[in-house]
């Protein structure tokens, strides 16, 4: 295999990997404040892309994306407010069933609205044959958009959680909910906010990547499985872990086409998930005591 081809595989792997990382971070944000895994996380990515495509029919691209992101965020907020907020300390199993149910519900509504057709936003700059060359490696500008926008979101989130008052309140809520209440923090609102944030980053990712990967009413399921694998691989709750895990899975998948029939590509995530759960359930960057403390 030539060096160029190798790099080409890596670039493709990074593009998918960063999307997996965003889905995993979405899982983490909600997991950290509530202790539950939101299996409807992939649907946020789908909604972002699909709504933006519809809006783009009559709105300029930036406005279409903005509108799609806002609507997806509202969906996230409603999920919490309608289905989750009023449950007082529900069991993990119950939560899993609720979020899986919600993912099915959103998917069915999407099927009803958009049908089974495959859609995509236009390329943000240039078109499908535009490419930039880096030392012989040809890269679509949309790949740069995807990697760039997702990287900015990751960095922005980490600054948000570290330095803003709201970010601190959210961390306090995930650290110790009762203590947060005793500090006058409205933990219920922080949980809603975590759904809004997760939905927002998922929707943005769904928009930037749609020109490359296309979008359809049912892409959420696969993304949820991969994002979940990545979250576990990196260590539940760890953002650094999510990014590293996402890139690992993306690159592994990309190279798998080279040695395995393409049909096996999606099995890699499941294989990794099972291996991690057997060998190191706390993941690469997870603290093992986190796993012991949270009841998942």
């Amino acid at each position: 295999m030539s060096l160029e081809l190798l790099l080409q595989y890596i670039v493709a792997g990074l593009t998918y990997g960063i999307i997996y990382a965003i889905v995993a971070i979405g899982f983490n944000i909600i997991y950290n404040t509530t202790g539950i895994i939101n299996f409807a996380q992939g649907e946020f990515v789908m909604l972002g892309g699909m709504i933006a495509v519809s809006f783009n029919a009559f709105l300029p691209l930036p406005l279409a994306i903005l509108g799609a992101v806002i609507i997806t965020m509202i969906t996230g907020a409603l999920m919490d407010i309608i289905f989750i907020r009023w449950l007082r300390s529900p069991s993990v199993l119950r939560m899993i069933i609720i979020t899986i149910g919600l993912s099915i519900l959103i998917r069915e509504v999407a099927l009803h609205i958009w049908g089974e057709s495959v859609r995509a936003l236009p390329y943000f700059t240039g078109n499908e044959i535009t490419s930039l060359s880096f030392g012989g490696v040809r890269v679509s500008p949309q790949v740069l958009w995807t990697v760039g926008v997702c990287s900015v979101m990751v960095a922005g989130l980490s600054l948000f959680f570290r330095y803003t008052m709201v970010g601190r309140k959210m961390r306090a809520t995930s650290d110790n909910r009762n203590a947060a209440l005793l500090c006058g923090i409205s933990t219920g609102n922080m949980v809603t906010l975590s759904f809004v944030l997760s939905a927002g980053i998922g929707a943005v990712a769904g928009c930037v990547v749609s020109p490359i990967t296309y979008t359809q009413y049912n892409i959420g399921t696969g993304l949820a499985i991969k994002g979940f694998t990545v979250a576990i691989l990196g260590g539940l709750g760890s953002s650094v872990g999510a990014v590293v895990g996402g890139l690992i899975l993306g690159i592994l998948e990309s190279f798998s086409i080279w040695v395995l029939p393409a049909a096996y590509k999606d099995a890699i995530a499941i294989a990794i998930l099972l291996l991690i759960l057997f060998l190191k359930p706390s993941g690469l960057f997870g603290k093992s005591d986190v796993m012991a403390l949270k009841e998942f």
């Binding site: 008052m165 601190r168 309140k169 961390r171 306090a172 650290d175 110790n176 009762n178 203590a179 947060a180 209440l181 005793l182 500090c183 006058g184 923090i185 409205s186 933990t187």
Partner: peptide
């Protein structure tokens, strides 16, 4: 959370500090 705003605050049993946050962040919160 409203009772804290009214001026009644509890130092809970077993301290319950935010373990993963800095001392100053705990105080600011």
């Amino acid at each position: 959370e409203k009772r804290v705003f009214m001026g009644a605050v509890l130092v809970p049993e077993g301290r319950q500090v935010f373990r993963t946050m800095s001392v100053e962040e705990n105080l600011i919160l």
